[in-house]
Structure formats: C-alpha cells, structure tokens
C-alpha cells in the first residue's frame, strides 16, 4: 500500500474513532444535550463504544483472511485497539467521577461487592498491558512470539467486557445479546481457522512423508 493512502486511511480511522467523544463533548456543552440522564448517557456511550471498537479490532484478522487484498487492514488494528482502551478508560473514569463521586471507600466496596463492576475492572486491567506494549519498541523488545501471546489477552478482555454488560443489565433484558453473538462468531472463526490450518499442515506433512 502506498504511504499517502495509508495516511489517509489512518486519518479516517482517527476521525471515526473520535466521533463518539466529540458528540459527548458537544452534548455536554449544549443545555440538555446529553438527554435526561447525562451521567448514564456518558457511562453507556463510552462502554458501548469500547465494545464496538474491541469487536472491530477482533474482526480484522478473520476478515483479512478472506482475501489477500484485505491484508492492509492490519495497519489500522493498533489504532483501533488503542482507541478501545481509550474509551474503556473514559468509561471507568465516568464511573469514578459520576457514580462513586470520587469516594474511595464506595469504590472499594463496589469492586468487592458488585460482580459487574469487578468484571469491568478486570476487563480494563487486561487491556492495560496491551496498551502499554503497543509500541514498535515494545514489540521488538518482547519479540514477536511473546508479544503475540501477550496480546491474546484481548480475547479474555472482550469476554470479560461482555459478561460485565450482561451482569449490568436487568435480568430478562437481552440487549447484550447481539454483542455476544458477534464476539462468539469472531472467536469461533479463529478456532475454525486454527483447526483447518492444522489439518492442512498435517495433510501436507503426510504427503511429504509419502
């Protein structure tokens, strides 16, 4: 891919990823702009955006495998992953500021007592090392193999994220279901791919032995 095209695509990704934040800021500056329940709106939007960005990040590898012409997508993955972490952090800050009211005791009690908050904190903690090792320097330092292994934590993080969502909604409310299905498909695609390529390599091994 030519460099100007890549820069253009990256710029587009930046803009797209900043839209939810821009809308929140615009809403906060307009009277009534964040609706009836601004605190809940901020918490929900940032959480929802985090899950969406995690899903898009996770979709890149399976989609890329569909065609050789899509291999450029990998160049956008780091940016998307970092934005997912950015919104996850905003989501957590929204909780700290608007829900716990910066009350440390309330926060500790919440994390200990409320499993959906515990799960949310775990998901954020799982994303933290990924964000910290996102630089090219860190990849080199860790070595590709170890870096890849570490970054498999995103699977765990997204699973924790969606469980956090299920535990937050009322019993009987099914809104996290579409997220769960899509994440399930994206994770299954990886398992299938691994199984198929295993069989392929086993088959090629057999033919080479024959």
């Amino acid at each position: 891919m030519k460099r100007p095209v890549l820069i253009f695509l990256k710029a587009l990704t930046w803009i797209a990823c900043l839209v939810p934040l821009a809308r929140l800021i615009y809403g906060a500056l307009t009277p009534g702009g964040l609706g009836a329940d601004p605190s809940a709106h901020i918490a929900l939007t940032t959480g929802y955006t985090t899950l969406m960005l995690l899903i898009i990040t996770l979709a890149i590898t399976p989609v890329r495998r569909l065609s050789r012409h899509l291999s450029w997508m990998i160049r956008l993955r780091r940016l998307l992953g970092l934005f997912a972490f950015f919104y996850a952090t905003l989501h957590m800050l929204a909780y700290v500021a608007l829900y716990s009211g910066f009350d440390v005791h309330a926060m500790i009690a919440d994390i200990a007592k409320r499993r959906f908050i515990t799960m949310g904190v775990i998901a954020w903690l799982l994303l933290l090392p990924l964000a910290l090792t996102s630089t090219t320097w860190a990849i080199r330092k860790l070595g590709g193999k170890r870096w890849n292994l570490l970054h498999k934590l995103i699977y765990l993080a997204v699973i924790c994220g969606v469980i956090h969502y299920w535990w937050q909604v009322k019993t009987g409310v099914l809104t996290p279901l579409p997220f769960t299905i899509v994440i399930g498909i994206l994770l299954l695609a990886r398992i299938l791919y691994a199984l198929l390529s295993n069989r392929k390599s086993a088959a090629s091994q057999r033919t080479s032995e024959a």
Binding site: A28, G32, L34, A36, D37, P38, S39, A40, I42, L98, G101, A106, A109, D110, R114, R115, F116, W167, Q168
Partner: peptide, 15 residues
Amino acid sequence: PRWSQKTERRIGLPF
C-alpha cells in the same frame, strides 16, 4: 445487589 442505593441521579440536571 448490583449498585448502591445511597445516592441517586436526578433526571434533567447537568452531569
């Protein structure tokens, strides 16, 4: 079980 009832968010006020 999933949140504290000590405080509440009044609808229609700034965040």
